[in-house]
Structure formats: C-alpha cells, structure tokens
C-alpha cells in the first residue's frame, strides 16, 4: 500500500473512532461506577492494531483523544483517555503478538479493557491523591468483560472485511 492510501485509511479510522466516541457520550447509561462506559472506539483501535500495527494504532488513539477533547470534553478527561488509550493499545498489541496462537480477538480485547480500567483508576488515584479509588477497580473490570467481549466480536468481523478490502486495493 502506498503512502497516500495508508494516510487515507488512517484518517478514516480516526474519524470512525472519533464518531464512535461522540455517539457513545450521547448514549445514556445506568450509573454503576464512575468511569464505566462502552468503549466503542476500542473497536476501531483493536482493528487498527491487528491490520496496521502498533505505530498507526497509537497515532489513531492520540489523534482521537485530542480531537475528542476539542469537540466534546475538557483537558482533564483528555489526560484519562489518552493515558488509558495508550496503555491499552500497547497491551492489546503485545496480546496480538504473543498470545494470538491461543486467544481470539475477544480475549485480547478483554485484556485490553482490563489494562484500560487499571490505567484509568491509577491516573485518577494520582490526580485525587487517594488509593481508595482502587475500590472501584473490580466492579469496573467486571463490567468491562461484557463490553470487552462485544468489542472483540465486532473487531473480528471488521478485521475480516478490512483485510479483504486491503487485498483488493493492492
């Protein structure tokens, strides 16, 4: 794939991740624990990790967070989303590299969701200077198993189609 096509694909994926983030912020959810959300944009990021690799996925994560901050949220939320996004992308990349003989994308997505939660709670604990926030981590992890399974299953479907499309382009 030449450079221009790659850039076009990356910007499309960034736009998709951004739109999913915005839609997600509009969906009302029952209040279970602070910070619990669907993580729809992880579908795009996990697919990018599989199809394009770590560097491009990190680029999408950072661009998504910056744009989402400018459109919908504030710099504090940006700190949470960019740090947990980067860590979960790294973890999902390592999962794809070393565990893909055993786990499907569903398992990798669940691991990524765990890393996302752990980072988010850690950042919050640093910002609020209280370790008590770790009390929320098990609850958040249990919720994120469901969303992680959903994200993983969707990513399986997307990566299938995306790889076929990319083959046609070449």
């Amino acid at each position: 794939m030449n450079k221009t096509k790659r850039y076009i694909f990356l910007s499309l994926l960034t736009a998709a991740a951004l739109i999913l983030s915005i839609i997600e912020s509009m969906i009302p959810l029952p209040y279970i624990a602070p910070g619990a959300k669907l993580g729809l944009s992880n579908i795009v990021i996990l697919s990018a990790v599989v199809v394009f690799g770590l560097r491009d996925a990190l680029l999408i994560v950072i661009l998504r967070s910056v744009l989402f901050m400018m459109i919908a949220t504030n710099p504090i939320t940006f700190i949470y989303s960019v740090s947990s996004g980067i860590v979960s992308t790294l973890v999902m990349y390592l999962g794809c590299k070393y565990l893909s003989s055993k786990l499907s994308l569903i398992g990798i997505s669940v691991i990524g969701a765990m890393a996302h939660n752990a980072t988010q709670v850690t950042v919050a604990a640093i910002l609020f200077e209280t370790l008590k926030l770790y009390y929320y981590l098990p609850i958040l992890s249990l919720i994120s198993i469901f969303t992680g399974c959903f994200v993983g299953y969707t990513s399986i479907l997307i990566t299938d189609n995306l790889e076929k499309t990319l083959l046609k382009l070449n």
Binding site: C96, S100, L142, C149
Partner: peptide
C-alpha cells in the same frame, strides 16, 4: 489469528471474573 471464541478465551474470562 483465531477467528472464533475458543476455550482459552472462556478460561481467561472466567479467571478474570473469579
């Protein structure tokens, strides 16, 4: 890359739940 959910995924999920 495995295309479908398999026993390792389910084992991982059960371990995390426990």
């Amino acid at each position: 890359m495995k295309k479908k959910i398999n026993k390792y995924d389910i084992g991982l999920i059960i371990a995390i739940v426990i």
